[in-house]
Design a protein around this nucleic acid. Structure first.
Lengths: 127, 127
DNA sequence: CTTGCATTACGAAATATTTCGTATTACTTT
DNA sequence: AAAGTAATACGAAATATTTCGTAATGCAAG
């Protein structure tokens, strides 16, 4: 059994992270103005969300100025990698060198495995 | 504003879908036995989960035999595409032809956009 | 300075997800 | 056919996520 729980952003957190990733850093106002274009929730909701993300250590904030400035600590790349890993986990069902148990962290995948991963990714490439 | 909400599997649903995708179809017992290797929850939890997924239309089940057999209706490819889309949404921040608003569904991305997408995907390919 | 405005803080309600206990039902074994 | 076993049904508790109302605070304009 395995109970290493790695952080995955929730739906809402991901939306906020997207904006932070794009802007590099932003205030709650910045983020909320963006969010509003796509989603229809109040300002304090966004604020609270970002406060929670701060607690979780997903973002950090500079509180020296009155208007706090937030930066992502969880990178876009990591989000992608984590998702990819999650998908690959399901892929290596029978394989003895089960990536499934988090091997992707510890050992290098084999040639064969790399090939499979590439095939898996190919679909995104064709047109 | 936009409020078209497309289904995204929750964390737990995804775990179950992984197994169903691999097996093609499976009973609750099958799924639970797999799940147990990785997670430590009771049988009825898995059952309930799969029942809910049935209600949501994420899976379907054959109830002709006593032991129900479940099949995924939500494909691995779609899960990937949705995630990818979500990531791309954040990528086309300023672009006039904002993929952000779900354009990926409706119109073909431009040459330029395709290039950006490919670049984005490249990181997964290098070794 | 004091009024108004934008911000953060915070608690708690609303909602969604995950978990499981208990009951019921069907099949199998004795 | 009775007892045991394994499955589904279902309600509801536990937990996690999302939402927002209200209050407190600081800044800026009058």
């Amino acid at each position: 059994m395995n109970s290493s729980k790695k952080y995955t952003p929730t739906e809402s957190e991901l939306e906020i992270l997207q904006i932070l990733w794009n802007k590099g850093e932003a205030t709650v106002r910045d983020v909320h103005d963006e969010l509003e274009k796509v989603k229809d929730t109040g300002y304090t909701t966004t604020l609270k969300m970002m406060q929670i993300m701060t607690e979780k250590g997903v973002v950090e904030r500079d509180t020296t100025t009155r208007t706090h400035v937030y930066k992502p600590l969880f990178s876009r790349e990591l989000a992608q990698k984590n998702f990819l890993k999650k998908m690959l986990n399901g892929l290596f069902k029978g394989s003895e060198t089960r990536l499934a148990m988090g091997a992707l962290d510890q050992k290098k995948p084999s040639e064969q495995e790399i090939k499979e991963i590439k095939d898996f990714l190919k679909q995104f490439e064709e047109q």
